[in-house]
């Protein structure tokens, strides 16, 4: 009797619903798994792995192994991939791979182990294809986690212990390798304040960025009383990236189109021009005076990337 016929006899062929599930989820899993190889961005790769895991979980649940499916998502998607994403975000996402071999003969070893894995997977596939299958329902008896627990803690107890030891050793290794003996005293808040006083550093927080109602953004430097730019008011990160808005850009936005570019003018002149324009606009307004300041402001709203702030009930 052929395997397929035996399977049909025991009611183990795929139902229509199961086939629909397989042919919907299967391609998604394969596509997202290949995105792992071809995607350029590390975070996109991580996302595709996540999608693969969830797709596989759906297939497991469809095959009558809910425990495996759900644990797959909890452990791999929820914890391990999350750790990967965490590291990717901390390290920086677009660092290209280095192809330098750090271990000698790494490629040959890699190929060898790869072939070994292929052989193991092939063996598993062959076993699943050419032997008599009885189905998950028959072994798990309607209580999938209970059946797995019985197996794990009887036949595979030793394997489980060994795996547990391996994981603990790995965790200990990570702790030992990354441990760093602190050579100096940890600075407290009071210590840092004392250092600031001693070194003559700024004691207060830096001035807030932004000027004028239109440019209340983190990348626009504040102006001091003389109209000079206060460099410190823009966060260090933006300054290092060179993303600071210049006052000239701000002035150009404020000025009417017919006025010449202010690129060449020195800062003081630019400030004078801006002040003149605003004052003139305010003076030219007809009464009532209460609305003058509001209408003096430019009519169009600048596209500033700031999320709407809820009034009082932001979570």
């Amino acid at each position: 009797m052929s395997v397929l016929a035996a399977a049909a006899d025991s009611g183990l062929v795929m139902s229509t619903a199961e086939q629909w599930l397989f042919w919907t989820v299967g391609p998604i899993v394969v596509l997202s798994a290949s995105a792992l190889l071809f995607a350029k961005r590390a975070v996109v790769t991580a996302c595709s792995v996540m999608l693969t895991m969830v797709g596989l979980a759906v297939l497991y649940v469809g095959l009558g192994a809910p425990f495996l499916g759900v644990v797959q998502v909890v452990v791999y998607t929820g914890a391990i991939m999350m750790l990967f994403v965490f590291v990717l975000m901390l390290v920086g996402v677009d660092i290209s791979d280095s192809f330098v071999e750090t271990i000698r003969g790494q490629r040959w070893l890699g190929t060898l182990f790869g072939l070994g894995l292929l052989a193991v997977l092939g063996g598993a596939l062959a076993r699943a294809t050419f032997t008599q299958v009885i189905g998950v329902e028959a072994v798990s008896d309607g209580n999938n986690p209970g059946a797995i627990a019985n197996l794990l803690f009887s036949d595979y107890a030793f394997t489980l212990e060994v795996t547990g030891c391996l994981l603990i050793i790995a965790a200990m290794g990570a702790v030992v390798l990354t441990h760093r003996v602190r050579l100096t005293k940890k600075l407290t808040q009071a210590d840092m304040a004392a250092v600031k006083v001693r070194e003559g550093m700024r004691l207060t927080p830096p001035p807030a960025p932004g000027n004028y109602a239109r440019h209340n953004a983190a990348d626009v430097p504040a102006l001091d009383a003389a109209g000079k730019i206060i460099e410190d008011s823009v966060p260090d990160v933006l300054r290092m990236r060179g993303q600071v808005h210049t006052l000239r850009g701000v002035a150009q936005d404020l000025l009417p189109a017919e006025v010449a570019p202010v690129d060449a003018a020195p800062v003081d002149v630019v400030v004078d021009v801006v002040v003149d324009v605003v004052v003139e606009a305010a003076a030219a307004e007809p009464p009532p005076p209460a609305d003058a300041s509001a209408e003096a402001a430019p009519a169009e709203v600048a596209p500033v990337d700031v999320a709407p702030v809820e009034e009082g009930d932001t979570p």
């Binding site: 996540m50 809910p66 425990f67 759900v70 998607t77 929820g78 999350m82 209580n143 986690p145 933006l238």
Partner: peptide, 30 residues
């Protein structure tokens, strides 16, 4: 309901966090 329903809740919650994480990452803002 199924034998691993509570684990299912944990799994779904874990996937939901990706919304927050990816949303923050994809905005490309500090």
């Amino acid at each position: 309901d199924f034998p691993v329903a509570v684990l299912y809740i944990l799994a779904v919650t874990a996937v939901g966090v990706y919304g927050i994480v990816l949303g923050g990452w994809s905005s490309r803002a500090t």
